[in-house]
Write a protein that binds this DNA or RNA. Structure first.
Lengths: 137, 137
DNA sequence: ATAATATGTTTACATGTGTAGTCGTTTTCG
DNA sequence: CGAAAACGACTACACATGTAAACATATTAT
């Protein structure tokens, strides 16, 4: 269950491309929004060693591509993710499968199987997973 | 957990990163090697509209990163793919799964299921596929 | 021998991306 | 009030990537 109704056009706008570095910022905003630049800077300085201007640049670029929205809060800004993580993951997945496997999942699984990238456990888990899926009606 | 024997070191050297444009060149060489630049230029001019220097630049860059090998043939070169397609696909796949899904396949399948990206037929095919796989011993 | 042709090399340039220094303000603390 | 701190904007720069013009040289056809 997901779209259909939603007259409010809650759809994410055209697939936003998030770069590697930007992804780190988005993860924080997906984890919790809104946040101040201060928080984000502090966290990324710790986990990636980035300087404040670096993080601010990323935030600016993300805002420019409307992946995050900014809201004035006094003299500063509150940053909020404006695209859903799952939508971004979906887009990355789509383009990856397209480029590598003609868009389908089966060839990827087949490839991994041939490369012995799947353990017996992986296979069992995948089967279980597939058994629980409700195909789109 | 995987290398072991293989004294012949048939391993592809450190994962070569093939860019989008370069991929088009590699596909041709994987399809058939060796080839002359002339052939490659002709084909890519047709299917991508690229000018000769563009294709030559790509060949040069690929040679620089040892993804293709060149062999003098008279005054010109014969170009041959020097990395296996499946190895490149494997690397792309690995890095993609890493970045998006923590390296595992299950979360990807789960994601696609949630996004209704899998039809009943897809699911059936995947199950069939998994049934035929021999897990790595 | 000359002119035309084919080849590879050099150089070039715009855009994207990762990273960060510096600036100009504003806010806050002493 | 004046100095320090916080904040966002602007500027910068190197490297990657897509794309190609120019160039030098070798080869071939006339």
């Amino acid at each position: 269950m997901s779209k259909k109704s939603a007259k409010k056009a809650r759809d994410q706008r055209p697939p936003v491309a998030i770069t590697e570095a930007e992804w780190a910022v988005m993860e924080l905003l997906w984890e919790s929004s809104p946040r101040t630049s201060q928080e984000i800077v502090a966290l990324l300085e710790k986990e990636r060693g980035w300087k404040r201007p670096t993080v601010l640049t990323l935030l600016t670029r993300l805002a420019a591509k409307a992946a995050v929205s900014t809201e004035p809060q006094g003299n500063r800004f509150l940053y909020t993710s404006a695209v859903e993580r799952s939508a971004c993951v979906a887009e990355e997945t789509r383009s990856f499968l397209e480029r590598m496997f003609g868009g389908a999942l089966q060839p990827l699984v087949a490839h991994m199987a041939e490369h012995h990238s799947l353990t017996k456990k992986d296979i069992a888990e995948l089967k279980a997973l597939l058994d629980d899926i409700q195909p789109k009606p």
